[in-house]
C-alpha cells in the first residue's frame, strides 16, 4: 500500500456497509443484513466447493 503511516486508518468495509444498510432499511437494517450475510455466505461457499460454470457460456442478452 502507498498509504503513509500518518494517514488516518481506512474505514472498515463492514462499517460502511452497515451504515448504508441503516440508510436503506432503517430500524430493520440489522435483520436484513443478517439474512443477506447468510445467503451470500452460502453462495460463496457453494461456488468455492462446486466451481459452477456459467451457462450458457456466452450471455444470451448483452
Amino acid at each position: 500500500s502507498s498509504r503513509s503511516s500518518t494517514a488516518p486508518p481506512s474505514e472498515r468495509p463492514g462499517e460502511r456497509r452497515a451504515a448504508e444498510m441503516k440508510k436503506l432499511y432503517g430500524r430493520d437494517a440489522a435483520k436484513i443484513l443478517a439474512m443477506e450475510a447468510a445467503m451470500q455466505l452460502t453462495f460463496d461457499r457453494n461456488c468455492d466447493l462446486k466451481q459452477p460454470k456459467y451457462w450458457p457460456v456466452i450471455p444470451l442478452k448483452l
Binding site: 443477506e36 445467503m39 451470500q40 452460502t42 453462495f43 457453494n46 461456488c47 462446486k50 466451481q51 459452477p52 460454470k53 456459467y54 451457462w55 450458457p56
Partner: peptide, 26 residues
C-alpha cells in the same frame, strides 16, 4: 440452490440444457 444478494447470478445444480445435464452451473 441460491443466489448472490445482488441477484446477478443464480446458482443451480443438475441443469438440464438442450445438450445434456450440467452438474453445477451459474
Amino acid at each position: 440452490r441460491t443466489s448472490d444478494i445482488d441477484v446477478l447470478n443464480f446458482q443451480v445444480s443438475d441443469l438440464h440444457t438442450p445438450i445434456g445435464v450440467q452438474k453445477e452451473a451459474l
